[in-house]
């Protein structure tokens, strides 16, 4: 996969599907994920219509390790620097989990570069502040890994080499970068920030997701934006029956969406 050197940090690993698509959709993966999350799920479906750009956030996947700049403004700037390096002047955005927060921040900061945003699984702040060395042990990592969908867990635990490589990324970001400080300084998504987001945005949630309660908190501030709730957990987009790409295509293409009622959270 190609690496591109941007002005924001060292090298960014990226992949492009359907390079001849008329408009671009850029996909931002979640914290501790990588571009494969969407390359192996809805990316190719979106690429039937759009040019799809997927990339690894700093220190994730095969992008360079970077010791600082783990706040939302820095991630938003990284994205713009990537677009500059690849000659992309305007793009739709899709952000997942932490990536959704990056997408919203980019929409507030760089509205001229962004067409529409899909914010998938906007997460709440952690209940307690994150802490550095000591708390993020192998056991904690295994706990985190077990919160993933079953198929992913089976794959994850099928090889010690795979598990240790993923842990190495996790350990680096937690213990050797400014991630903890930057995240503890982060404020929850606010009414003010959502109010200043002038980009048309579609919020997507799974009704059994650990992030779903966040929708109830932010829903009163979502005035002109759209919300769609799927049956499923944090990884609802991996369920083909949900037809997530189809909905996103409609949204980006300006077709009317059926507004859904806010569904009740369901326990796992």
């Amino acid at each position: 996969m190609p690496l591109v050197r941007t002005s924001a940090h060292k090298e960014v690993n990226y992949a492009v599907l359907n390079p001849n698509g008329k408009e671009t959709v850029t996909i931002i993966h979640g914290m501790f994920g990588n571009l494969s999350q969407f390359y192996l799920s809805i990316g190719p479906d979106l690429a039937k219509t759009y040019k799809v750009l997927l990339y690894d956030l700093k220190s994730h996947g095969k992008s360079s390790k970077v010791s600082n700049g783990y706040d939302l403004d820095s991630f938003a700037w990284d994205l713009v620097a990537l677009w500059d390096a690849l000659g992309i002047s305007k793009s739709h955005l899709m952000g997942f989990s932490f990536g959704a927060l990056v997408a919203i921040r980019a929409g507030v900061r760089y509205p001229k570069r962004i067409q529409k945003i899909t914010a998938m699984e906007v997460p709440p702040l952690p209940d307690v502040p994150l802490q550095k060395t000591g708390d993020y042990t192998w056991d904690h990592f295994l706990f985190f890994a077990h919160s993933l969908p079953k198929g992913v867990i089976d794959n994850f635990f099928s090889s010690e080499r795979k598990l240790k490589k993923t842990y190495a990324i996790y350990e680096y970001i937690i213990n050797q970068t400014s991630f903890i400080e930057d995240n503890n300084a982060r404020k929850p998504l606010s009414e003010q920030e959502l109010g200043s987001l002038q980009i048309e945005t579609l919020f997507l949630y799974g009704n059994q997701s650990i992030c779903f309660p966040e929708l109830a908190r932010i829903k009163p501030w979502i005035k002109h934006q759209k919300v769609h709730v799927f049956n499923g957990t944090h990884g609802f987009f991996m369920d083909k029956d949900n037809k997530v790409a189809e909905l996103m295509e409609k949204f980006y293409g300006g077709h009317p969406l059926q507004e859904e009622k806010l569904q009740e959270a369901r326990p796992l």
Binding site: M1, A15, N34, L35, S36, Q37, Y39, L40, D56, G61, K62, N155, S158, S159, R161, K162, K165, T166
Partner: peptide, 15 residues
């Protein structure tokens, strides 16, 4: 993913 112990990002690289 079993015999060759490839991670998902390596599958992307393969693709």
């Amino acid at each position: 993913t079993g015999d060759l112990e490839m991670e998902s990002i390596e599958l992307v690289e393969f693709s």
